[in-house]
Simulated scan of single mutants.
Amino acid sequence: MNKEAITAIVSSKLKLIRTERGYTQDKMADVIGLSKKTLVQIEKERSTAGWTTAAAVCALFRNSDILQSALGGDPVEIAELAAHKTISRPNGQEKTMGGRVWWRELDSQKGIRLQQNVISGHYRVLDAEDYRLFSTYDAAEAEEHFQNHVKRTGDE
C-alpha cells in the first residue's frame, strides 16, 4: 500500500471516522488542521485529503475501528511503512497483537514469525513475544530479515 492508496482510503472513510468519534465537522476540522470547507469537500468526495492530512488522521485516530479495518491494522504502522518503505526495530520496541487479525503466518522458526497483512500486503517479522522487528512491502527483504533473526535466535 502506498501513500496514494492510504490517502484515498482515509479520504473515503473520513466522515465515518468523524462520526465514530462523535465529532462535529467543526471539531474534526480543528483536530486535523483543515478548514471546515475543505473537510466538507473531502466528505462529499469532491476532493481528497493530502498525504499530510491522511498521515495526521492515521496518527490521531489510530484506535478507530473504521480506520483499522480499512487499512488492515495499526494505521500508524501502515502510514509509516508507506513513507519509509521499511521499518526496522531490531530490539523489538513495538508490541503487536501477534497477528490474530489481518495477518497470515508465512513461516515460524525458533519463535520468530514471518507474516503478511491480508489487506495491505506488507510483511513483518515478529519475535516470540509479538514485538515487531521489521516491516516491508518487499517479500525478499522480509524473508532475509526473518532468516537473519532466526539465525541470531539460534546463536544466543
Score class of each variant (00 low, 15 high):
N91I: 12
E141V: 07
V10G: 01
I32Y: 05
Y123G: 05
E77M: 13
V76T: 09
G22H: 13
I42N: 01
L114S: 14
R113S: 12
H145L: 09
D74I: 00
G99I: 02
M1E: 01
S64W: 06
L60K: 07
I9R: 00
Q109V: 13
C58T: 04
Q41S: 14
V40W: 13
N63H: 15
L67G: 05
F134A: 02
T24S: 15
R113M: 05
G72F: 04
R152A: 15
D127E: 03
P75H: 00
Q93N: 07
I66G: 02
Q25R: 07
K3C: 01
F146H: 04
G121K: 05
Y123T: 09
G72I: 13
K95V: 13
L106E: 12
I78S: 11
T38F: 06
K37Y: 06
S47E: 08
T136V: 03
W102P: 15
Q68Y: 08
A8F: 14
S35T: 15
N2G: 15
V150N: 12
G92Q: 01
S35N: 06
E143I: 02
V150T: 12
I42Y: 02
Q93R: 10
Y131C: 12
T38L: 05
K95S: 07
S11Q: 08
G154M: 10
N63L: 09
R124P: 01
W102F: 15
Y23N: 06
T136R: 13
L133A: 03
T38H: 09
